[in-house]
Design a protein around this nucleic acid. Sequence first.
DNA 1: CCTCTGAAATGGACTAGACAACTCTGATAG
DNA 2: CTATCAGAGTTGTCTAGTCCATTTCAGAGG
Lengths: 244, 244
Amino acid sequence: MVLDVNHQAPREPKYYQVKRHLLQLIDTLAPGSLVPTERVLTVELETSRTTVRQALSELVGEGRLVRRQGSGTYVAEPKIAWPLHMTSFTEQAAAAGYSASTQLLDAVRERASEDIASRLGIKTGASVYCIERLRLVDDTPMAVETSYLSAARFAGLIGHVRKTSSLYRVLADVYGTAPVSAEETIETAVASPREADLLNTDTGAPMLVLGRHSFDDAGEPIEWVHSWYRGDRYVFVAKLSAGH
Amino acid sequence: MVLDVNHQAPREPKYYQVKRHLLQLIDTLAPGSLVPTERVLTVELETSRTTVRQALSELVGEGRLVRRQGSGTYVAEPKIAWPLHMTSFTEQAAAAGYSASTQLLDAVRERASEDIASRLGIKTGASVYCIERLRLVDDTPMAVETSYLSAARFAGLIGHVRKTSSLYRVLADVYGTAPVSAEETIETAVASPREADLLNTDTGAPMLVLGRHSFDDAGEPIEWVHSWYRGDRYVFVAKLSAGH
DNA sequence: CCTCTGAAATGGACTAGACAACTCTGATAG
DNA sequence: CTATCAGAGTTGTCTAGTCCATTTCAGAGG
């Protein structure tokens, strides 16, 4: 296969011209400023509202603009840096100067899908606890976190979780176990209506999904978690040193 | 502020019904299979082509479908796991069983923007080298990587980079320096026409952007890099242990 | 048998407009 | 003065279509 890197650049779509025009405009405005309405832009840039909306949508997805139905479109606040590989959510937030809290959305027992079962080292259809929590920072929803744990291994977990906010504390105090290693994954996704509602954003908005697969000292899987963050609001940060 | 988590769920948009219908269909098909055309779906699901395209676009963005103009829409291959925090790009790829290569796209000397200057610890407008490279895995474009380094500190760098593929080797062998710590950031973005062209995807496609800010043993900044990966093709993976 | 050509089918980009849902403001009634 | 409400203006969703760029493939011609 021959690589075709030097071929002609594709012609620029019209909505991209609109986008560049808006980017220039955004640079001159302070966060919170109102940008022209869709209909005004349609006339000014001599295009259709659909095209203007495509440009606006991308900028919203990138966290540069915020749309408020019935009100207007505004220049967004800069993204919030969020440390990766945190010991404890609450702890790390406090260190960064935020007040963090957690809200239990749902805690149910269900049958493991093939995917969940293989991750937890149990049989498909075995009982698992599914714990869904909303992470808040300064009372603003930050992430939707869903944890899966084996029901056989952590019998009665739901009752404990309802009383104590920290899952890791329950695991340590009640079940005498703690994760010593983990494999984390980071990928992009698109918000479903449910996540969009909980995180106060739009269906289809770009998300950052952080997955964590935790193991105990014996190498046995403890939990499988995935956390959905608004991609337009957060940027993950990790500090690395020497060794690698 | 009172949290309003239990209010009614928003009514499901029609395009999301289309999307769920397609997801069900995708689950029954093998990667590479053809899905019905946009016009067929429009009739079958009794909607407009615009609405069908919105659903298809999200699925393409999530890496579940691939569109080929003039041909059709196909079920996509699963995402590729890519290790984070790699020592050397080539090395790490080899370890994962891939053959990696790098193609130099551009290497120029330019004036530092305010942002770049502050990252490199130099004055705005000072000379910097901007080195743009395309990372390939098994001859498939994987990421567009742009590095910025101080031209004063690494005089003549471009000449060396044209001869040697590894930037870090040049830094070590010629300039006797190496990064010992770094701060990495991960965020979502949207592909510009240029990146879309280089990575063989579409303008506006969701991307994962990895930033790395490297420092030497004296704590002086060495380089600032950002790498753009196709969000629909890659998932970053990191292994963590105990103390982390 | 091979090559070329052109029609058909596909996705890509865009338009013009309708109606719904929501926000804000100013006029009005109490 | 305050509270309410109607209406104007905004974004959200959807429709029905046009035209373009690319791919595919069957058939004509060599």
